[in-house]
């Protein structure tokens, strides 16, 4: 029982990161109806850049800022190079393939020039050896901090979406891009800001993950992205609270199965959940089916 609770707490913690990644996918989905298949490389880029900068003596807060800016910038490029031209091609195959390619490109560049080896990630707030006592169960303090931090970021974004001018425009674009354009909203700017923000938040998710894992390598983002997909799909694409629910559920399932069977089995189960939910209820547990338009 204690073991299960420990695993569940770890699961909630990593699940909150999955939710955060899913929310960054939502940001681009709302504004352009696209999902970045290269998001894993974006968050790897931030984390790698932070780790490498910190290793060479840059203070951690500065290194983190540089990393987050790098991933935000990479997303702006991705929008310009992959998403914008593909919208003229039509269909989703164009942007799905080109964003996937963008991720492979970044991963290729990083492993070529920063090396293929795992880099140790510095502790930002707490180190992994610190524990807190919760109802007699020792729980890594790191997990709690990560959980609180990702939830805060998600909540802040949700508030921004609800109560800022930018957020309302994003909501409007998500509802009806054509109409929003007609009203004279500077769409390009809204889209670019959303992508930059998506990249920055993905970077934060990467740093949080690296806090738990302790190291980062060029291949680090991909399985995280898949988990982000699972969180999105389970909760219903484009829904922040759905993403949170989906992320937490998947995080707990993955950790519990991972703890009792094997890590690979944990991962396999979350992939199986992805397939099953896609097949049975593509709109997600909380989503509503989109009406087919002739």
């Amino acid at each position: 029982m204690r073991f299960t609770i420990t695993l569940a707490v770890a699961g909630l913690s990593v699940g909150s990161i999955y939710a955060l990644i899913a929310v960054t996918l939502n940001l681009t989905f709302w504004t352009t109806r696209t999902v970045n298949f290269g998001q894993g490389a974006i968050l790897m880029l931030c984390t790698m850049a932070t780790a490498v900068a910190a290793r060479s003596g840059v203070p951690i807060w500065l290194a983190g800022t540089v990393g987050i800016l790098a991933s935000a910038f990479a997303m702006v490029i991705a929008e310009r190079v992959c998403v914008l031209p593909a919208s003229k091609v039509g269909g989703s195959m164009g942007w799905a393939v080109s964003t996937l390619g963008f991720g492979i490109l970044i991963q290729g560049i990083v492993s070529k020039y920063l090396g293929n080896q795992a880099v140790a990630f510095p502790d930002v707030v707490l180190d992994a050896a610190q524990f807190v006592d919760l109802f007699g169960i020792r729980i890594g303090a790191q997990y709690l901090v990560v959980f609180a931090f990702s939830l805060t970021v998600i909540a802040l974004l949700d508030l921004a979406i609800r109560y800022t001018v930018w957020g309302r425009v994003v909501q409007a674009v998500a509802q009806d891009p054509e109409l929003t354009r007609v009203f004279g909203v500077p769409m390009r700017r809204v889209v670019v800001v959303s992508f930059a923000l998506s990249g920055a938040m993905a970077g934060v998710a990467g740093i949080l993950t690296a806090q738990i894992i302790g190291t980062v390598d060029p291949a680090f983002g991909f399985s995280l992205l898949i988990s982000g997909f699972v969180a999105s799909i389970v909760g219903g694409f484009g829904r922040n609270w759905g993403a949170l629910l989906g992320g937490l559920v998947i995080g707990v399932i993955e950790q519990v199965v991972g703890g009792y069977v094997s890590t690979a089995a944990g991962h396999g189960v979350s992939l199986a959940v992805l397939m099953v939910v896609l097949a049975v209820r593509p709109q997600g547990l909380l989503g509503r089916a989109e009406a087919v338009k002739a």
Partner: peptide, 26 residues
């Protein structure tokens, strides 16, 4: 093709991605 026939667009990309990864895990 049965589950894949129910989804389209990028959902299909995710599903085939998942299928490929499950095979390797198994």
């Amino acid at each position: 093709s049965w589950p894949a026939g129910r989804v389209r667009e990028f959902y299909l990309a995710m599903m085939t991605l998942g299928f490929g990864m499950i095979f390797v895990e198994v």
